[in-house]
Design a protein around this nucleic acid. Sequence first.
RNA 1: GGCCCAGUAGCCUAGUCUGGAUAAGGCGACAGCCUUCUAAGCUGUAGAUCGGGGGUUCGAAUCCCUCCUGGGCCGCCA
Length: 574
Amino acid sequence: MEYFKKTLIKELEKNSYFKNKDIYNLIEKPKNDYGDFSIPLFFLSKELKKNPVEIAKELKEELEKNDNLKENFIISNINAFLNFKIKKEKIIKRFLEKKENINNEDKKTFVIEYPSPNTNKPLHLGHVRNMCLGNSISKILEYNNNKVFKVNLNNDRGIAIAKAVLSYLKYGNNSTPESEGLKGDYFVGKYYVLFENKIKEYEKKDPEKAKKLLEEAYELLRKYENKDEETLKLFEKFNSWALEGHKITYKKYNVKHDKEYYESKIYEEGKKIVLEYYKKGIFEKDEKGNIIINLEKYNLGKKVLLRQDGTSIYITQDIALAFKKHQDFNADKYIFVVANEQEYHFKVLFKILEILNFKKVEDNIHLSYGMVFLPEGRMKSREGKVVEADELLQNVKEESIKELKKRYNLEEKELQNRSEKIALSAIKFFMLKINPKLDFVYNQKESLSFEGETGPYLLYTYARIKSIIRKNKEKINENIKNNDYEYNDEEIKLIKKILEFETIVKESGKKYKPNLIANYLIMLAQNFNEYYNKYKILEENKNIKEKRLHLAYKISETLKKGLYLLDIETLEEM
RNA sequence: GGCCCAGUAGCCUAGUCUGGAUAAGGCGACAGCCUUCUAAGCUGUAGAUCGGGGGUUCGAAUCCCUCCUGGGCCGCCA
């Protein structure tokens, strides 16, 4: 459709009324059936001191003298609006012959970092949203001709890990994930929660004891930072259990990284960098001896970068990681997929990186998404009030097995395959169909629903088309000629929808909003299903059958491409 | 106290950046459609003072101001 818009603009530019006007932005898409493009003419009425309705009338007459316009569009004037409807035969010609050309002038290299979990617990619902967004954005950027590298930062150092390790030392009895029959990350998480529960218990009964236990955890962390060999080994073992567990979950959710980073391996580099810039006079010391940066003139306050005792904090290592990623990938843009609760942190980080003359603020992108809440409120890992990523997939998969069993009698292998894909489509679509920056409350019932605006609805529509194509038995003719077949209104509507695809993908990449594609696919599928219920595709008439099959096939291809960009696999049969 | 984000039918959302013509879908409710290409589908009905108020404009869900409600941040946590 972009092609026709450009044609329209090119011709309008020749008209004196539109001289020096931003025609591209004047053109809008009418909601109703007035046409494909429309221009409200109020802006001219002031300039010309004339009734806009009159202007519309005059302009219409004048524009109709333009042969190029007349060849491509039906021009009409309604009230103060000028409407352009693309001629049917032009749409069909475009659909049958050419591809939408997307222009690739903004080809760039991206590094996208996600989901960067802590290694003290399994991945949960928040991570699921994070992974879905990260996967989808990566694919969308790649589709728009960019190079994308995916990386992950494992936050495997810090007090949370120390708590889990200490709890294990006290109550673990040398058990292992294997001996307890637990997935590694669940095993680690169990001891972390156990620790927090003990603290809570002691706080009620004997606050001194709680304080002492907490102090023990900090003592353990100090031992770790001082490189006590036994402690190092213990942390490493614990982390490897958690990481193994995470790896299994990544595989289920199709998360693949080009490179893994570990906080434990870069935090010291961070200290060095901070000290170096302190010596250069860019960072300063506060009265307590902390190394800080004063960002008050940017309204970001003062920020501690390194504690007075020399231990590092989150931002210390984030500076180092930024440098390291750039060394490894030399990218144009760096994306961080992190929840919106960290917006302040990233503003500070990006400002610092700019001050260090490293990267401009606009080359670092915090892809900030809204929080995921449970109906009872915020998820709290330490209280075990979470929905885990594995558990979610398991639940939805069971639900889809139920649905499959209602309908078909499948072999076990096929049942597993289909239910897995259906479940993933449900979860991913559920996460991606809404605007990333919106908070949302997780609704179990909704996540288990396969009807309406859902992933399975799209898979179903796709499979339905594939089934028709299979029934026909002949190969789809992709190069059909435009002969005397009259495409009906519904078919023209579908064709226009297909031609919108590239524009939608481009916009969704520019705005980092996969939900634009999700919504588009729903509309496309809805339009097709309406059409399907009204018209028969496998018609007797050969010419009609060929055209309809070809159209259905094109829709299935568009669905597949779109779903791929949401990282959802299709099923040939459902 | 300061800063950021959100508020659209009973519920979940699209549209807000870039103001335009009767505010678009889904869930749920109700009434229909399977001897005919997959009913995880389709058709129809009911359901919205777009949080309140003010302003700018020929025109506001959209821009500006203000108030209310909810969430988040302002840690030597991540």
